[in-house]
């Protein structure tokens, strides 16, 4: 407790007590109740949220005891033979997220630039609301859209990509021929086996990209809109074209927001569940061939397998959830750091 002393001023009234009064910063009365109760609320929230994290971390211990390090190297998740590992689903998670970011990043950047730099001023609030609305559309709706509307077309596109770029390993699509051997599917065949080209990481990534695009776009737009108008006008006054101004002023200023927004989107893409469950057909091997049918992510694994799991497998699922949480957490923290450290991030709270 700090006690502040005031200077004693001479008083003309001898009957008034001349000692300095004590000033205390300690809350009293209602304030003390307020301080303590709000501290209690904070502690409750800390216990709840921290409890979840702690609980997940504790679940990793029995998993490591039961399955050892093979938990991280084993591809298959087969509860029948008790072979359990997350190598396959981790690759699947990352490949779906990367496909999603491949589509979401350019679209988010372009629409953020359009809204902040090109759109007529009268339209701007409407467009901002539109992007926010897009972020609020539930993921299961994007899942339905991806499964019923996009996937047939995405399958045709996948055939086309394999025709053009099939020599790159990640665009290869395999199939099983009559003798049971695994061979490369033939995209030039008279009747292409379309079933090999759907339910893939590529199709899931398209649906997930629709979910993360508005998030990334919102962060980028917010940062772009903070560009100092003086610098923009200076660039234009020096004879720059509109794009030249954007390249010389807006993009360098918003670099932190671009990277941060993209990584926030990536964090969301890593944890996306229901759209992936709807679209992919589960397969648990390490499969870097994104156009081919079958993949799995950590969250789709949890959604598919929680019901049939034994106690040990359940804690393994929780440990897989912990790995996913840590991955998302690292990505989100990096994003927040990048946004906050950049010049433009001073007032930006993503």
């Amino acid at each position: 407790m700090t006690i502040l002393r005031t200077e004693v001023l001479p008083s003309s009234r001898p009957d008034v007590d001349q000692r300095p009064r004590k000033i205390s910063r300690k809350p009293s009365g209602v304030d003390a109740v307020f301080a303590h109760s709000s501290r209690a609320v904070g502690a409750t929230v800390l216990v709840i949220t921290g409890g979840v994290g702690l609980f997940l971390a504790l679940q990793a211990i029995p998993t490591l005891r039961d399955y050892g390090t093979s938990f991280f190297t084993e591809e298959q998740w087969s509860p029948d033979t008790n072979q359990i590992g997350i190598a396959g689903v981790l690759v699947g998670t990352v490949s779906v997220a990367l496909v999603a970011m491949f589509f979401a990043f350019p679209l988010a950047l372009a629409s953020a630039l359009y809204i902040s730099e090109y759109a007529p001023a009268k339209l701007k609030p409407t467009l901002v609301s539109m992007i926010d609305l897009m972020a609020a559309v539930p993921s299961i709706v994007y899942g339905l859209w991806g499964f019923f509307l996009v996937m047939p077309h995405a399958g045709q596109v996948a055939v086309g990509i394999q025709k053009l770029l099939g020599w790159i390993p990640i665009f290869r699509v395999t199939t099983i021929d009559a003798s049971g051997a695994v061979v490369t599917a033939d995209p030039h065949a008279a009747v292409v086996d379309a079933t090999r080209y759907v339910s893939s990481a590529f199709c899931a990534g398209i649906a997930v990209s629709m979910m993360v695009m508005p998030m990334a776009c919102a962060v980028m737009r917010q940062v772009f809109s903070q560009t100092p108008p003086g610098e923009k006008e200076a660039a234009l006054a020096l004879g720059s074209t509109h794009w030249g101004m954007i390249r010389a002023v807006v993009l360098p200023f918003g670099r932190g927001g671009i990277i941060g927004g993209t990584m926030l989107g990536l964090g969301r893409a890593l944890g996306e569940t229901i759209a992936v469950v709807l679209i992919v057909s589960p397969a648990f091997d390490i499969k870097p061939r994104i156009l081919e049918i079958g993949t799995a992510t950590v969250s789709s694994l949890i959604a598919a397998r929680f019901g049939e799991a034994t106690a040990a497998q359940l804690s393994a699922l929780l440990a897989a959830g912990l790995v996913l949480f840590l991955l998302t957490f690292v990505v989100n923290t990096l994003a927040a750091l990048i946004v906050a450290r950049s010049r433009s991030g001073a007032g930006a709270d993503a």
């Binding site: 949220t49 921290g50 944890g271 569940t273 959604a303 959830g321 949480f325 998302t328 990505v331 989100n332």
Partner: peptide, 10 residues
């Protein structure tokens, strides 16, 4: 802030 990263399925 850390827990905002918690995936909904977890």
């Amino acid at each position: 802030e850390a827990m905002t990263a918690l995936p909904s399925i977890v």
